[in-house]
Amino acid sequence: MAYLDLNVINTYYGRSHILFDVSLSIEKGEVVSLIGRNGAGKSTTFRSIIGLTPPRTGEVIFKGERISGLRAFRICRKGIGFVPEDRRCFPDLTVRENLEVAARREKATDTPWTVERVYDLFPRLRERERNLGSQLSGGEQQMLTIARTLMTNPEVLLLDEPSEGLAPLIVSLLAEMILRIRKEGVTVLLAEQNLHFCAKVSDRAFVIDKGSVKYEGTMKELLADDGIKEKYLAV
């Protein structure tokens, strides 16, 4: 059994059926990409895992335990961290406070994330420690939401389109961060549209389109497969 398993999940928003029989399995310590265009179902997959939009059928298994059906805060406390795509840092809290409110599960690992350690990872945040979330630039907000989720000491990190709307320089910085986070033993599931960003950080990829998984393979294979790229990712 894999570390994190999605078994044939179907997710709806109200009456509209968004995910169709999605199955994914992720091993411990991997960085896996979930690639697809706008509206393909990447965010919904993440929301299904974290429990914000629970799947109606199918199940999510984490370390052998069924987590689908639990409320989001319980799933978070099991060790799954979610970074949403729209950078929702708390606007009225300072950078440091944003981090403090998320601190959790310090005893779950030998080297828990602390405010100081995430500052080491994102030095820019240390400089802006006393600024409010709403005063940060887009790139800084993205760093803060990632750092904030790290404070929950996740074993699996769900990163939803972190590169979106960021300048190229910040994007390559971000790739570096992801690799460092992985070195800390965190498993990363990365949702992206940017194929080449994925290529830099992940080994395996799933391609999702119109709510179902169309392709599964190594990053290398995917890069070489013009048919798949043309069909599901390019215009």
Binding site: Q193, L195, K229, L233, A234
Partner: peptide
């Protein structure tokens, strides 16, 4: 990112390198 990068017929758009880059993030 808020700006028009291409404007044309479907065939023109398909062939446009900037559009490809926007979608695939190719460098």
């Amino acid at each position: 990112q808020g700006g028009v990068i291409a404007d044309g017929t479907p065939a023109e758009i398909k062939a446009n390198p900037r559009v490809r880059k926007a979608y695939l993030g190719e460098e």
